[in-house]
Amino acid sequence: MIERLRQQRLVALFAAGWALLNFPLLTLWDRPVTVFGLPLLPLALFAGWALLIALAAWVAEAPEDDDGP
């Protein structure tokens, strides 16, 4: 049961990542603005990518609850 839940979470994370890195949402970040001297679009791309990697690692490495017999 726990493994199935983990798989569902990873699939949902994949779908969220696909939506995050898809063209229509990327246009939201395409502005002539800089944050700490960095353009907003590449900064948002790398921040979103890092967040996806961190969440995937968290889901994949979560300890399994062994409450069974």
Rank of each mutant, 00 (worst) to 15 (best):
A47N: 11
L51S: 15
R31G: 05
L51M: 14
L38N: 09
V59C: 01
P32F: 00
L41M: 09
V35W: 09
A54F: 07
A56R: 06
L43V: 05
T34Y: 02
L45V: 09
L45I: 08
P32E: 00
D30W: 08
A57R: 09
V59S: 01
A47F: 13
G37F: 01
P32S: 03
V35R: 08
L45A: 10
A60Q: 12
P39Q: 04
A50F: 15
A57E: 07
V59E: 00
A60M: 12
L41N: 04
V59W: 00
A57P: 02
F46I: 15
A57F: 14
A60I: 08
F46N: 14
L43I: 07
A47T: 12
W49C: 10
A57W: 14
L52W: 03
A56K: 04
L51D: 14
V33M: 10
A44W: 03
L52C: 12
L45H: 08
R31V: 10
L52F: 06
A50W: 15
I53G: 12
I53F: 14
L40H: 04
L38K: 06
G48S: 12
L43A: 08
L51C: 14
A57K: 08
G37Y: 01
F36N: 05
A56S: 13
L55D: 04
L38Q: 11
F36K: 08
L41E: 05
W49F: 13
L38C: 05
D30L: 10
I53A: 14
L41G: 02
L55G: 01
L52V: 08
D30K: 03
L43E: 09
A44N: 01
V59Q: 00
P42N: 03
D30S: 10
A57Y: 12
W49G: 12
A44M: 08
A54W: 10
G48R: 04
V35Q: 08
F46T: 15
G48H: 04
F36P: 00
R31Q: 13
L55E: 06
D30E: 13
A60S: 13
P42G: 05
I53H: 14
L43Y: 05
F46D: 11
A50L: 15
R31C: 07
L38Y: 09
P39M: 02
A56W: 01
L41V: 07
V33G: 06
F46Y: 15
L55Q: 06
L55P: 01
A56L: 07
L41P: 03
G37C: 02
A60C: 09
P39H: 07
L41F: 09
W49N: 11
G48P: 06
R31L: 12
P42C: 06
A50T: 15
A56H: 02
L52P: 04
L41H: 11
